[in-house]
Design a protein around this nucleic acid. Sequence first.
DNA 1: ATTATCTATAGATCTATAGATAATGC
DNA 2: ATTATCTATAGATCTATAGATAATGC
Lengths: 229, 229
Amino acid sequence: MSEGSTAKRVRRTKAEQRAETLEQILDAAEYLFSKNGLHGVTLRDVAQRVGVHTTLLHYYFDDKLSLFEAVFARRAKVTSDRRMEAMARYEAEAGDEPTVEGALHVFLDTDFDLYIERGEPWMNYAAFCARVSNTPEGAALMDEHFDPVVLKLISILKRALPEMPEEDIFWGYHFVTGALMNTFARTGRIDRLSGGLCKSDDFPAVKARMAKFMAAGLLALRGEHGSTG
Amino acid sequence: MSEGSTAKRVRRTKAEQRAETLEQILDAAEYLFSKNGLHGVTLRDVAQRVGVHTTLLHYYFDDKLSLFEAVFARRAKVTSDRRMEAMARYEAEAGDEPTVEGALHVFLDTDFDLYIERGEPWMNYAAFCARVSNTPEGAALMDEHFDPVVLKLISILKRALPEMPEEDIFWGYHFVTGALMNTFARTGRIDRLSGGLCKSDDFPAVKARMAKFMAAGLLALRGEHGSTG
DNA sequence: ATTATCTATAGATCTATAGATAATGC
DNA sequence: ATTATCTATAGATCTATAGATAATGC
C-alpha cells in the first residue's frame, strides 16, 4: 500500500525527470486548451490533471501564456517540417508540371497521416490548433509557425495555375484551411447532423475526400466571377 | 456641462429604456465574446463597454452563460428564417431540378448579403458564431438554432445529387461550413499571408467565389474515393 | 550542491447577492 | 407602485512569488 505507486519510480536521472514532467504538463495543457481555450483553463486545472502542485507550472514556465505558446511550439516544427519535405519531394517528382490536386494531396494527406498514425495526443494538438487559429492570441503563433509551409503550398499552386489571379489562389487556400480547421476541431456537429453517418474523429474519411474536393473547387474559380474583390 | 449627456435623454418610457439598455448590453457582449470567447470576457468588461454597473447585467440576465446564450439567440432566428425562406423560394423555382451550385448560392449568398447590408453589428455576430462553433458550450447552441436550415440545405443537395452517398454530402457540408466559419472569424490571417491582396473583411469577395468553389468540390466527390469511411 | 517539488500566502479579479436610491407609471 | 440602476460586500478563484523540503549529482 505505502509503495503503491513505486512501480514506475525506478530512479530517474534529473534530466529524465524534468523531460517527463514537462511532457506530462504539456500533454495536459494541450488537452485542456484544445477543449476550453486559453481563458477556459486554469493553471490549477492543468496541475490537477498532471497530479502535481500548481506552482510547479511556474517553475517550468514563466506564466500561463508561455505554457500556451510552448504547447503550440512543441509539435509545430514536426508537422511543418514533414509537410515541407513532402512538398519538396513532390516538386522534384512533378518537375515542371505540378497539379493542384497533387499539391493538395501532399499538403493535406501528409498531415492527416501524422494524426492518424500517432493517435490521440496528436489529434489533441490538431484540435488545439483549430482553436488557436480562431483566437486573437493565436494569430501571431499561426503566422510564426505555419507561414512557411503555407506559402510553399501557395507557390506550388501558383505554378499549377499560372493564369489564375493570385487572389483566387489565396481565397482558395482560405477555404481549404477553414475546412481543415473544422476537421481538426472535432466538434461532433457533423456526427449529430448526419445521424451518426459521419464521425468527427474519422480523419481517414476526410483525407479520402478533401484534396479532390478542394482541387475541384480551386479549378472552378478559373474564368470570370464578378469584379468584386 | 452638467447637462452634457442630456441630448438623448428626451424622457423615455420604461419599455423603451429597457429595450435600449438590453440592446446595448447584447451589442457589447457580442463584440467582446466574438473576440475573446465566453471565458475571455468578464461581466465587468461588458458593463464597462456599455458604461453601466456590472450588477445591472445580473438584473437583466441570470448569469454569464445566459447572457452568452441570449447573444446567440438574438440574431439566430433572423439569419435562419431568411435562409429558410430563400431556400423555399429556390425550391419552388427550381422545381424538380435543383442544382448544387444553385442551392449553395441561396444558402451562402443570402447570409453574406445580410452581413454586407447591415454592417458591423452583424459582422460581429458572424464572428461570434464562428467562435461559438468551435467551442464545447457552443455545440448545443449551433444544433438548436441552425440544424433546421442546414438540414434544409442538405435535403436540396440530396435531390440535386440523387446518386451520391449521403456521407459524401455531409462531408461536403462539413467543408462548406468550415470555410464559412473561417470567413466569419475574420482573423486577418489571409490578409497577412497574401500581403494585403485579400482582406478578411471582404465578404463580397468571398461571396463571389464560395458557392462556385464548393459546388465544384461536391460534384468532384462523385465516383470512387477509396473505401475509407 | 543543484534541481525538482511543495507549503504558505499576497494581491487581484470575478461572479453573484442583498439592499439602497433614483427614475417612470398611474 | 413599480422598475431601472447603483452601492456595498461576500465568497470563491486565480495567478504569481517567496521560501521550505526532498530528491539527485559529484
